[in-house]
Amino acid sequence: MNAGERSDAGSSPTGANTSGPRLTRRGFLRKGAAVAAGASAAAAALSPLKDLAPEDVPSLAQFLQKHYKEMTPPEKEAVLNRITREVKDRYGVAATVTDPLPLTGVEFVYALNISRCIGCRKCVHACVAENNQSRAPEMQYIRVLQMEKGSIDLERSAHHYDPPLVPDEASYYLPVQCHQCAKPPCVKVCPVEATWQEPDGITVIDYDWCIGCRYCEAACPYWARRFNFTAPQVPADKLNPDLGYLSNRPRPKGVMEKCTYCLHRTRRGRMPACVEVCPTGSRKFGNVLDPDSEVAYILRHKRVFILKQDVGTLPRFFYYFDERGSRYHEPIAPVLPEEGA
């Protein structure tokens, strides 16, 4: 701060000078006024902080919490209990917070039949409901692109289509979500290892470790990552109480999130929410290491391709199309992009 004229004050901190500090009454008042003005200006500058929500101020336990991979089982237990308490306090919901571990001998892959997809966006909203994304503004992990027939150029796709009925005869649909790459550029760039690839192929984020630099968001070639630009808003009656530490537990503001193939479901033998809701059966999911699984069959027998093969990230998300015929479904009304789940 600009503490005014100081030359009246003593020039020696040690008092070794002979004359000693000379402090006149006028100088003292001027200095005092300058210090007071400075202090009040600084206080005014900091004043917005009084509106900080209590959950935005990390507690000591949160501040000292270890990285997910360094936590011992009792420490993890304590963290899960803390999250359960927080959900209870904030939403009044008795949730179960668990941390299902990857299963041995399992590598999840996804296969999406673009001959069948009708672009209804039911998957988008089932995902939002399952994974407790913010509703206002609504965050969506899946983006359905309406593609021009005869073109694979994403820049000519429509993101915000809303005709009365889908499918549009002149288009096909290309839903995109996290591709759970085997060589994930998002993991590579994270400076604090807040995101990593699990042994079952799912790339996860420790929401308690992410510093919010958004480097991963810039690195992702599939635009699959989302940032909490503000505190996520989920109505208490919409909160899905089946929570996973690495997937759908409520997120704080200022951190990244993304599709986790619903790992709190899929690691317990259930299907992801988007697969379950799809009215056309376009979405297939399973363990590619199991030769009898549907996805293994599709990869062996269908005409399969991956999006943006040129970026070389080896996705675990495959698109395929049927050899003959295309649409199996009567036209139905799509859910508009703006509508809540």
Binding site: K66, C190, P191, V192, E193, W209, C213, G254
Partner: peptide, 19 residues
Amino acid sequence: LGRPDRALHLFRRFNFPIS
């Protein structure tokens, strides 16, 4: 940064030399 309060995480997990 979205979470400047966690900047110290750089000292605890530092993704060097990959990032």
